[in-house]
Design a protein around this nucleic acid. Structure first.
Length: 729
RNA sequence: GGACGAUUAGCUCAGUUGGUAGAGCGUCGCAUUUACACUGCGAAUGUCGGGGGUUCGAGCCCCUCAUCGUCCACCA
């Protein structure tokens, strides 16, 4: 054996041997009780980033339960990541001087498909490099035909249950990317813009968006505002850049009397707040900006101008006509930006598919809530507990979920529109011109004869990934769903608790009648060494594989759980990685020391019998490692990974290596069999306990112990009966 | 504006139900060709962010303030 541990000689070889022997499959423990985790599917469009290395927590749990004899499944997969992927691909096209508008829908889809197909194996290779014991035979992709079928089934069911509706609603629309975004996806930024004070007949109001005035359907004041009482509920005559007009004055307490003049123009088609005011007062929507970002015919002579140009032109015109009272140039406010291209989001009315979330949220809330009547008690536990509050906040204030996306890359909505203008007469039963079909329909289900067309939109990525636990298990090996659903743990970053986890609970309960998982475990983010969030655009992203090359997978894995409480953020630390690498070297040299004893010739024909493996003479060592087994097991059961890691590190290095081995050196020189037996007992136990954290080196060292049988990955987890003997728990 | 988290040794962070502060790295001293220098032994270092309260006793519980971070909601 070398003096120094060389991870590159070990890792690939060991992983391959595990995979070939089928140890990652639950079938290795056919009689065990089920334990399952579905891997949060990484985006198929890009190599792994550092956050993915946190999957190590799942691997620790999986390996622990596998060794405990559970029928253990860790199911891998990949997410098509609709918009993310299309954006990355668009960038690639840009680099080639092209854009997505150069291709038709089918060609574009095929191109992205090929692009993703190239990336997926890369990503899977990376997961292997980190040692993750995933059952590759069960891997799924969100665009697999059988997954799509399930997504269609759920959509149809929601529709038939009246939980899906189509409505013209304001959406966050990016006229540059040509797509709408959910509220969660919009980025807000502080900007300085002019605030224009415009004369509206007898009133003056302040606005940052004079170009939307053509879409005004009312002017609002606060009901208690003494200045404007006489105008409330009256129509006022106003002079505009397009001539005289009449507009209604309404009272609504959303108006801030202190702001500007205390008068607000209401533009329901282009502002979210105005839209809500409009729905309270039954005001009509008047769209003046098109989806191309240009003013439409309702803007009169400003038609065809882009919003920015129109604003300038309208302001100029108002100035000329004396309609502009003053301009506050130093007004700062927050505006919504497209989180990808950073252009301003334009609220626009668009027909969308929405899911009514109110009824879906209720069981998702009670699934976690404690203190409910018997039978409705929370069955899902969230760790760390403080994230419960975020979960409840989201679900208790949930808004309906817009699940349509105007992009090509994704699961196309299986909704079809009748094109027969008389369809409603022909079929009075149909609520509208749409029908939903899980399979490509032969004929129009509304009128029965027209040349119907499919909705061009695709589903929000979270709509499909929100069904991931049951979708992956229902489309896998026979019986998987029955055996492994609900899964034992859903482990992911806390940043997607609402986007993903809460939605999985809603859709899981809705579709299967059961919770999708029993425990929710959330880990923190990994920041750069200076504590800043890693991101590609900032250039501070670290590729986890580079660190694996440098320090070894085991050291990287251990560094991620050591010294940081579960759920807390951590900063990448090179000194920490180095000391964890040193720890692997310490392990290696313990193994090397044992090898030297075995090679000494003193223990040639000796095979310590079972009874001798826990020698009375070294009772303290045996008890102390048994006590370690107890502590590590308890820590893992409570998801206290940092405690377990700390115990292991302390014991193996500073107790076993520094103390026990020194004490055993002399007896070993004398060829004392009990000393060897004690050494091996403590060593074997230590390797087992450490294996979930550092799988590669422990397996390699295990195979060097002469009487160690089989592979460490499937060896029996140490019991700790002796440790608790005589000691109160 | 709201919520959550953080604030503990020079740095990075632990500290589970309240019982006179811990680790890793770093620093300083000593040892040594030793299974391992990616080593061993030893040492120093903290009014636990500020203030107030509960308690026999608070890093931990309560109130308040400050700074940083994250998420959510967003006033034209």
């Amino acid at each position: 054996m070398d003096k120094v541990y060389k991870h590159k000689d070990v890792e690939e070889k060991i992983y391959k041997s595990w995979e070939e022997k089928g140890f990652f499959r639950p079938e290795v423990n056919p009689k065990g009780k089920p334990f399952s985790i579905i891997l949060p599917p990484p985006n198929a469009n890009a190599p792994l980033h550092f956050g993915h290395a946190m999957y190590v927590i799942e691997d620790i749990l999986i390996r622990y339960h596998r060794m405990k004899g559970d029928k253990t499944l860790w199911l891998p997969g990949a997410d098509h990541a609709g918009f993310e992927t299309q954006f990355v691909f668009e960038k690639k096209l840009q680099g080639e001087g092209k854009s997505r508008f150069d291709f038709d829908r089918e060609t574009l889809y095929k191109m992205i498909w090929d692009f993703v197909s190239e990336n997926r194996p890369v990503m899977e290779g990376q997961l292997r490099r980190l040692g993750f014991s995933l059952d590759w035979g069960r891997k799924k992709f969100t665009l697999d035909p059988d997954i799509v079928k399930i997504v269609y089934r759920t959509f149809k069911k929601l529709y038939d249950d009246g939980l899906v509706y189509r409505a013209e609603r304001l959406v966050n629309y990016c006229t540059y990317d040509g797509t709408s975004f959910s509220d969660l996806e919009v980025l807000y930024e502080e900007r300085k813009d002019p605030l224009y004070y415009i004369k509206y007949g007898p009133l003056v109001l302040a606005t940052t968006r004079p170009e939307t005035k053509f879409g005004d359907t009312a002017v609002a004041v606060h009901p208690d505002d003494k200045r404007y009482q006489k105008y409330i509920d009256k129509e006022i005559e106003i002079e505009t850049v397009l001539g005289k007009a009449k507009i209604k004055v309404i009272a609504d307490d959303f108006v801030d009397m202190e702001f500007g003049t205390g008068v607000v123009k209401i533009t329901p088609a282009h502002d979210f707040d105005d839209n809500e005011v409009a729905s309270r007062h039954n005001l009509p929507l008047k769209q003046v900006i098109g989806f191309d970002g240009k003013m439409n015919e309702k803007a009169g002579k400003f038609e065809g101008l882009y919003v920015k140009q129109a604003r300038k032109a309208v302001v100029e015109e108002m100035q000329n006509k004396g309609l502009l009272e003053k301009v506050d140039e130093n007004y700062t406010h927050r505006i919504g930006l497209c989180y990808k291209c950073k252009n301003p989001i334009e609220p626009l009315p668009l027909e969308q598919w929405f899911v009514k979330t109110g009824e879906l949220a209720k069981p998702a809330i009670s699934a976690v809530k404690k203190g409910l009547p018997a039978g409705r008690q929370g069955k899902i536990k969230i760790y760390p507990k403080n994230f419960e509050k975020i979960y409840f906040d989201f679900l208790e204030n949930i808004r309906d979920w817009n699940i349509s996306r105007q992009i090509v890359w994704g699961i196309r909505v299986p909704a079809y529109k009748c094109r027969n203008p008389k369809s409603e007469i022909r079929n009075p039963k149909s609520k509208n011109e749409w029908f939903i079909s899980e399979i490509k329909p032969e004929k129009c289900e509304v009128c029965g004869e027209c040349d119907f067309e499919q909705d061009p939109d695709t589903f929000d990525t979270w709509f499909s990934s929100g069904q991931w636990p049951f979708a992956t298990l229902q489309t896998n090996k026979e019986g998987d769903f029955k055996t492994f659903y609900p899964t034992s743990v859903m482990e992911t970053g806390y940043d997607i608790l609402r986007w993903w986890v809460a939605r999985m609970v809603m859709l899981g309960i809705y579709e299967t009648g059961k919770i999708p998982f029993v425990n929710i475990l959330l880990h923190g983010l990994v920041n750069d060494p200076l504590g800043k969030k890693m991101s590609k655009s900032k250039g501070n992203a670290v590729n986890p594989l580079e660190l694996v090359d440098q320090y070894g997978a085991d050291a990287v894995r251990f560094a991620l759980v050591y010294g940081t409480a579960t759920g807390n953020d951590q900063s990448l630390s090179y000194p920490k990685l180095q000391s964890m690498r040193n720890f692997t070297n310490k392990l290696w040299n313990i193994g090397r020391f044992l090898q030297l004893q075995l090679d000494s010739g003193l223990f040639k024909d000796i095979k310590p019998a079972e009874g001798k493996r826990e020698p009375e003479k070294y009772k303290e060592m045996v008890e102390s490692v048994d006590n370690l087994s107890k502590k590590v097991s308890e820590s893992l059961d409570q998801y206290r990974f940092h405690d377990a890691a700390n115990e292991l590190y302390e014991f193996i290095w500073h107790v076993f290596a520094d103390k026990y081995i020194e004490e055993l050196k002399e007896p070993l020189k004398d060829g004392e069999i009990e000393a060897l037996a004690a050494f091996i007992y403590v060593w074997e136990t230590s390797l087992k306990l450490l294996h979930p954290f550092m799988p590669f080196i422990t397996e390699e060292l295990w195979r060097k112990i002469p009487e160690a049988e089989g592979d460490l990955i499937v060896s029996k987890w140490p019991s700790f009966a002796k440790a608790s003997e005589g000691k109160p728990l």
